[in-house]
Amino acid sequence: MPVRAPEPSSGDIHDLEPQQFLEEVHSFEFWFQAVEGYLSGLTWGHRPDTPDEPLVPADRERLISVLCNYCVGETAALEGSSGLIAIAPNRLSKIFLSTQVADEGRHLEVFVRRLRDLGVADPEAEIERRASRSLLLFKRRLLELVASKDWEAAIFAQNVILESLEFVVFTSHAEDADPVTAEVLKAVIKDERRHIGFGENELGRRLADSPHSRARIAQIRKELDHLVLDTLEETSGNIGLDRSEHDRLGRVYLESVERLGLLR
């Protein structure tokens, strides 16, 4: 029987025992009630009555390129997280990843829909045409790690590196996007919190138990870092970030890597 999270006698959630907390937050029930809170009433990721302001042609072009690459990232995460379920080491991770698969599928769907709203007749072809080479290489490497059943490396690549990149980029982009895109991004960001947290905590626990793995994961970070930073550079340019904001995003991206002791 799963351990359900009881109300602590103090009434404070922080008094839960660690295992009770983990059972609660990795459950499908928790996920369902969480997403219901912010997706209810949305259509294709935004409120139906949000005005879709026309963009000037250059801005529209840049937004299409950005969304195409968001679709590449989300496809990588969708394929990666679904593949990871089979090699997840325990029930809680398998159930959590099943919720992540649903999240990633929704993200891909709303970004493709946004492309159609912007007048892209064949989103699949446009995604292929505009995909960043660095991001495609990253996706290929991620799926190789999943296929090789390397749980730690694949979780690191997907839920630490890729999700952290998406979290910082989406957060920054949402601040300055048109109203519809901003709403779509803000709902996606709420899902990304769970994904980055799962990755960092799962990997953190495993590195604490087997510190010898740290050098191996650090090597994978070195291999993937330039692909991520190249992608960040390209996306930053397309969403119009200045150099200081781009540098700030780079630092934020590295925070989780640093907390895990993988910067060296």
């Binding site: 103090s10 009434g11 404070d12 959630i13 922080h14 839960l16 660690p18 907390f21 983990l22 609660e24 937050v25 990795h26 928790f30 709420k190 919190r193 769970r194 980055i196 947290g197 799962f198 960092e200 905590n201």
Partner: peptide
């Protein structure tokens, strides 16, 4: 995210971030 407790927090206290599942 800002995490809130029903008690004043002190060094050594444990708190949970449910949005990202961190202890």
């Amino acid at each position: 995210v800002v995490i809130r407790s029903s008690r004043e927090l002190r060094p050594g206290d444990r708190v949970y971030c449910m949005p990202c599942m961190s202890r």
